[in-house]
């Protein structure tokens, strides 16, 4: 049986925990600098579930290079990571592990749901499906959704920019021009 739709709690905020309450430092400019530093050093967790993870690895490799934005430090331990990229299909068997890993990340933390499977179950959202969680946001709060099957590395980079926008309220990098033809 598929995960029923009513499992999704409606009160899950669109953006998870980008504001820590109460703030670590009360002074506003200090907080702004801290937020800026957080957004510029988003360390993801070494963690992939399915084929989207291949695109995630491609994002870290030479052609796209996640390192340009300081986010190439894939930490093996959840204690040291900031961003959880749910890259791939979350099965019912994997779900407890995903939730536990999310809970093991110290605050502040952000989640990127990468690919259609992590967003909604993707191609597995069918009647015969019995083992796929339809959307990782039924388990953990997701900050940024990166659609695609799988998304291109540019898409994941854009997802990182959106996380940065959630933290600092600003998109830091220029938008690529639309190419005709």
């Amino acid at each position: 049986m598929a995960a029923p739709d009513e499992v999704v709690p409606p009160e899950i905020p669109a953006s998870g925990q980008h504001a820590i309450q109460p703030p670590v430092v009360k002074a506003k400019p200090v907080q702004a600098i801290l937020d800026l530093c957080r957004s510029m050093s988003l360390w993801p967790m070494t963690f992939g579930l399915a084929c989207c993870a291949i695109e995630m690895m491609a994002t870290g490799m030479a052609r796209f290079d996640l390192a340009r934005f300081g986010a190439e430090v894939f930490r093996p331990s959840p204690r040291q990571s900031d961003v959880m990229i749910v890259a791939g299909t979350v099965t019912k068997k994997m779900a407890p592990a995903v939730v536990r890993l999310y809970e093991q990340i110290p605050a502040p933390k952000w989640v990127i749901a990468m690919g259609n499977c992590a967003i909604s179950g993707g191609p597995f959202k069918i009647k015969e499906n019995y083992n796929v969680i339809e959307g990782v946001d039924t388990l953990i709060p997701v900050d940024v959704y990166v659609p695609g099957c799988p998304p291109r590395p540019e898409g994941l980079l854009e997802g990182f920019f959106q996380v940065q926008r959630l933290i600092t309220g600003k998109r830091w990098w220029p938008v690529a021009e639309e190419v005709q033809g």
Binding site: C37, S41, A62, R68, E72
Partner: peptide, 19 residues
């Protein structure tokens, strides 16, 4: 064969500070 940290400060020199 990739540039490494590049955008945080000129050629990414502010990267360790941010970290």
């Amino acid at each position: 064969r990739r540039p490494g940290p590049f955008e945080v400060g000129p050629h990414g020199i502010l990267q360790p500070l941010a970290d």
